[in-house]
Design a binder for these strands. Structure first.
Lengths: 349, 349
DNA sequence: TTGTAAGCGTTATCAG
DNA sequence: CTGATAACGCTTACAA
């Protein structure tokens, strides 16, 4: 079992009748090598199955070719959000011979330390971290660690101002405003909002969008109908909160905007249990536009963000930092969102 | 920006008043170092934020600490299958300081070449490949590449016999047999089967299970009701095939077993369009037990395989090969499956 | 266009 | 228990 390239490059050089250096140049697409020579080298290389050693390259070059994409749990890889993002990143970085590696850091308490290690050990040339999985109190642990780290997703303003790291995120507010406009167009006046965890950036911004949209459409917000769910519990949480909403008070909303699709799915379930018809009695809009939105009954209208575009933007930042060696700076990119209308919304009768 | 450890280890050694070698020993948990000395080194190290270089280690040790998990597309990371598997693998390999890296190889035509590169370049110490994404005609390209590669998921028998690689998979047949037993218990006699792509191992084995189950329960198979879907198109495919099934013939099945949850979701949708009530008119069972099975209406009964267990088994094989350096051999592990009953199945009235 | 030499940060080996 | 040395495979800088 010879997994190492021990001496293999030498053999290739010998076989091709050239020096080691020429082999190296060929595998680095150097223009300073004659076409004939290159062919000889390539032939000899494929004969021996030679491939330059990643480790040696990384050591010599001072940085690896791995880009780490940190996720909070293997389960969070579900859904289209990460998938499309990853596809977008790869599309951009692969031509530069960078490898995207998805890394899982379950323990948020040691996240900063882990990031430090990945960078300090040189295992990764750059890291992509979802801000929303990052405990704020650990941010300062990263201070001084001048490294190509970037946050994908929304960071609070004060963090953006002070952090040396770039961020790419979606325009949460705009998505919700569009949703409210859509509902207003359908003559809804009594609109509720099921948010996510209190204080979480995404949740806060989506609620802000809801309120701005309501104001813009001159609709009154009934605070009874603005509730918070647990993003993590998703379905169950949406079910429970919708349940409470329908069991209290005499009047109920004719439309509810939810801060996640899972919450929306739970809300639909709960509403059905109360004998409500969806969308005839209550229109529901989700958020994230997960692939299974079309599997629910009725198919769920939802707010979509283009993960592919997010990925591409991230990729471009990474390439600038790692390949072009541009000095780090903290750019903040905000990408648009849009409403996808399916069958869960209808005009009030 | 000093990302490299250039000379850092030296500084640490100097600060601690020891030699470089002692620093190395400390970071390798060598027992041959005095407690006092270790403390001094550790203190100096944390002071400088020193972390051993991954690249140098890999170069010196002859193998990296990265385990590659190959996936066919970023989107395929959705669902619980990969997520749980990944969690299981990490649980086992992390204590051995191995890092799991999810790698995406979209182009199946170059899969074998990519595997070669990952191994030959030493980028990965071992690779985990889902067999079902592997084009059979490329298998021989891997011949001679004696490397710690293993296949997660079902390989056809003839491959298992001839391949030097281990496999871990689920008992597809058993899952389907259990499903049929359940349906038979509910007095169903007219049972259909919506398989996956013709010839695909999973599809073939699940159909075999369906037939064995039917035979065991002394139920007759109506070949009109045994159809094939496209795993990739999933939902749409299930919809289309169920549509055809209901539009042809005079008699229709009272229960249908589907080879994937997405197909099942599509089948439900189609059946509803034909005015069929689910499960009263037609009971439906899916396969995979995706997390969104409980979001469908009615909640989908499905066949579950324990991804966590799969991951753990894979992890154990990897550790044996990479850490214990056991010689490669081709073990074949088959894990059990079980039926999860929700609301999409009911007794015939 | 090609070759030579030196060194990237670790660790195996051999001394002490 | 600790230290000096060489080598892992590659590429930058400098020659030829």
């Amino acid at each position: 079992m010879s997994l190492t390239n021990k001496g293999l490059a030498n053999k290739v050089a010998q076989k091709a009748g050239v020096s080691l250096m020429t082999v190296s140049r060929v595998f680095n697409d150097s223009p300073r090598v004659a076409a004939k020579t290159r062919d000889k080298v390539l032939k000899a290389a494929s004969e021996f199955g030679y491939e330059p050693s990643n480790a040696a390259r990384a050591l010599r070059r001072g940085h690896s070719n791995m880009i780490g994409y940190l996720v909070s749990s293997p389960q969070s890889l579900g859904g289209t959000y990460h998938g499309d993002t990853i596809a977008g990143i790869e599309e951009v970085i692969t031509p530069h011979d960078l490898i995207l590696s998805i890394l899982i850091v379950e323990d948020r308490a040691t996240l900063a330390r882990n990031i430090r290690r990945y960078i300090a050990s040189g295992a990764c040339a750059a890291l992509i971290v979802r801000f929303d999985l990052f405990p704020k109190d650990q941010l300062e642990e990263l201070a001084g660690l001048e490294a190509p780290i970037m946050f994908a997703s929304n960071a609070p303003e004060e963090i953006k101002q002070n952090s040396p790291y770039s961020t790419v995120c979606f325009d949460n507010e705009s998505g919700c405003i569009q949703a409210i406009r859509h509902l207003a167009m359908l003559k809804h006046q009594k609109v509720g909002f099921l948010g996510g965890n209190k204080g979480w950036v995404d949740s806060v911004q989506r609620e802000a969008g809801f309120r701005k949209g309501m104001a813009e459409c001159k609709l009154e917000v009934n605070e009874q109908w603005v509730q918070h769910c647990n993003f993590h519990l998703g379905f169950e949480s949406g079910e429970e909160v919708m349940n409470q909403l329908l069991s209290s008070g005499t009047e109920h909303p004719t439309a509810v905007l939810c801060a996640s699709d899972q919450v929306a799915a739970g809300a639909i379930q709960a509403a059905k249990r109360w004998g409500k018809k969806i969308p005839e009695d209550i229109s529901i809009i989700g958020y994230d536009d997960q692939f299974w939105c079309r599997f629910t009954t009725p198919a769920l209208s939802s707010i979509r963000h283009d993960g592919l575009q997010l990925g591409r933007s991230i990729g471009e930042v990474i390439v600038k930092q790692v390949i072009d060696q541009e000095p780090l700076d903290s750019k903040h990119i905000v990408l648009p969102t849009s409403l996808v209308v399916r069958e869960s919304t209808v005009a009030v009768s």
